[in-house]
């Protein structure tokens, strides 16, 4: 007898929502919205809402296509085994169709509501996530999330483009900040989820190079991130509120990753604390990006 949760054709609306990876969407929407807020110029609230909605739906569509492509990996990872496709509640082809329809729809509506450049940037972010990260890099190289991180860095740039119809130094800096933030964020997760990745054959850095090297690279990328986050202040693109917030948050992030590097470990580099510092660093990295971008908006309106 089939289990109640896996009855064929018994997907609930919540299953379709889960295909959109709503938790990932939150950060994407927030950074896209902040990119829009700090851009010079004005966008009608209806069009601004539409632009944010398109960024959210495009991110969700990318997530749905990713779940379709990675359904074999998801089926063997504890963290993902209950997703709608491996759970048997949504057929793979349905998920693909859903994702592609939403991707095309979001790009067209972005173009109609704002401008062609923002729509092209949105299409680029979907293409990057699906083709470059999911299909090409993820299963081939431990640098997968370094290069693939660009996909998640697009939203503030798209938000800016939706208002201005072009690019400038500021959106490129915001792109770079999210891009460099991604490795320490994701590798912190990979440190405590590495057995899942190993079982699925995904060559994440801790699986290929070991936990010790991963901790070293987390610190290196964080050291790279901190001077980058103060650049908007140094270049007088923001004021002191953002600058000081970036310094304080950066110090907090650095403390967290140093704790990760100094985690008690055995000779092979395996954590003896159940990766407690990596779990804390992962949580803090999310808060860090939220607060950094929130400071950007507060600074913008306070100037």
């Amino acid at each position: 007898m089939p289990s109640q949760s896996s009855l064929i054709g018994s997907s609930s609306a919540a299953d379709w929502l889960a295909l959109l990876k709503p938790r990932v969407m939150t950060l994407v929407v927030f950074t896209g919205w902040m990119g829009m807020l700090v851009a010079p110029g004005h966008l009608n609230p209806v069009l601004a809402f539409t632009a944010v909605l398109c960024i959210a739906v495009a991110a969700g569509a990318s997530g749905a296509i990713n779940m379709w492509y990675d359904r074999d990996i998801d089926a063997v990872m504890r963290r993902t085994v209950n997703r709608p496709i491996p759970g048997g509640r949504i057929a793979p082809g349905e998920a693909l169709g859903f994702g592609v329809a939403l991707a095309i729809g979001s790009v067209i509506i972005m173009g109609l509501a704002t401008n062609v450049f923002a729509a092209l940037a949105l299409a680029g972010s979907i293409g990057f996530y699906v083709f470059i990260y999911t299909m090409w890099l993820k299963r081939r190289t431990p640098q997968n999330i370094v290069i693939g991180g660009a996909a998640g860095a697009f939203p503030p740039l798209i938000g800016w483009a939706a208002v201005t119809g072009g690019l400038d130094v500021m959106p490129v800096l915001l792109f770079a900040i999210v891009f460099i933030w991604t490795p320490p964020h994701f590798w912190s997760l990979a440190l405590f989820a590495h057995s899942d990745y190993a079982r699925a054959g995904v060559p994440m850095l801790p699986v290929v190079k070991g936990a010790r090297e991963t901790r070293r690279q987390i610190v290196l990328y964080t050291l790279l991130l901190l001077p980058l986050t103060v650049q908007p202040w140094v270049l007088h693109l923001t004021g002191m509120i953002y600058g000081l917030t970036a310094v304080v948050l950066g110090a907090g992030f650095l403390v967290h990753v140093i704790r990760v590097a100094r985690d008690r470990q055995d000779a092979a580099g395996v954590s003896l604390t159940n990766d407690a510092p990596a779990r804390a660093a992962f949580k803090f990295s999310i808060l860090y990006l939220f607060l950094l971008f929130a400071a950007l908006a507060v600074d913008h309106f306070a100037r």
Binding site: Q4, L7, G9, S10, S11, S12, A13, W16
Partner: peptide, 11 residues
Amino acid sequence: LVARRRRGRNW
């Protein structure tokens, strides 16, 4: 259960 979920999807 299937009918309930289908109704939910339709709404």
